[in-house]
Design a protein around this nucleic acid. Structure first.
Ligand SMILES: [Mn+2]
Ligand SMILES: [Mn+2]
Ligand SMILES: [Zn+2]
Ligand SMILES: [Zn+2]
Lengths: 136, 136
DNA sequence: ATTCTTCTTTAGAATAATTATAAAAAACTC
DNA sequence: GAGTTTTTTATAATTATTCTAAAGAAGAAT
């Protein structure tokens, strides 16, 4: 089955109508081998470049948020004025190349288990994420 | 020597003229026992509350950036629309209480050494920071 | 297929955080 | 004090993001 059909199925299963805009966005986001880290603006421009079709900026925002809510995208906190998203939704760590402003995935085995020795009463740990900043 | 005199000295040493606005900001930021995590807006409001004197928002931004540049404040990357700053400029980790939107310092001993097993050619590690998100 | 309903897209307006501007005020130098 | 440089401030500009409301597309019912 073509990936387009997969996307349509996935969208339908998520109660999201498979519009051509959403399918194009899926194509840019998920038709790739490696994890993709991006800002909304990156994505907005890539859609034009890769599919030749314009999708309005509002729709890019809407779709990214819809996918985020469904758990198909992850938000990454970075010292930056723009929000980064990640197609790798698993719990994982990152390098951040400060000069290039680029995120690189770290495998969990590249970092090893992290043991948090402190706890706050009434709170439990939701996630543990390491950010390793890189310089030249 | 009063802390005010200390602040004046510190500002002079940093080639920053010790204006009453900057001294008030120092007072709010550095006259406290524990690490202080804040947004610009937090700080803006606290200055009014604690010192009874208004400092313009532009000056708060300017001063925070000046202090950041001098290394007296640290910027903390958080999933939020506002930038967080930290009076603890050492390399350290955080809890982030997602509900309260509050940062809590972790001592390095509470996390233990983190061993990064991967490297990127031509790049070296600048910092390693753990962010532990907390939920109820 | 036609109609009806609901969801989606879109351009543009609105909001909110941050940065830039430029004139007045304050701080230093001599 | 006169002259110079830095700082403050109100306000405008910028930027990322969200909101709005109308037009369009998709799905359901007939
Ligand atoms: Mn989101
Ligand atoms: Mn800064
Ligand atoms: Zn990632
Ligand atoms: Zn801290």
């Amino acid at each position: 089955m073509s990936s387009k059909q997969e996307f349509i199925k996935k969208l339908r299963n998520s109660n999201l109508r498979p519009t051509k805009q959403r399918i194009n966005i899926c194509d840019v986001l998920f038709n790739r081998d490696k994890t993709f880290h991006f800002t909304i603006n990156d994505l907005f421009n890539l859609i034009k470049d890769k599919t030749g079709q314009k999708v309005s900026l509002a729709t890019v925002y809407n779709t990214v948020h819809a996918f985020h809510k469904k758990g198909y995208l992850k938000e990454i906190p970075i010292n930056s004025n723009q929000t980064y998203f990640d197609t790798n939704v698993s719990d994982h760590h990152h390098f951040f190349d400060v000069k290039e402003e680029k995120l690189i995935d770290l495998k969990n085995e590249d970092v090893g288990p992290i043991d948090i020795q402190k706890s706050i009463p009434g709170k439990k740990i939701k996630s543990v994420e390491v950010l390793v900043k890189l310089e030249d």
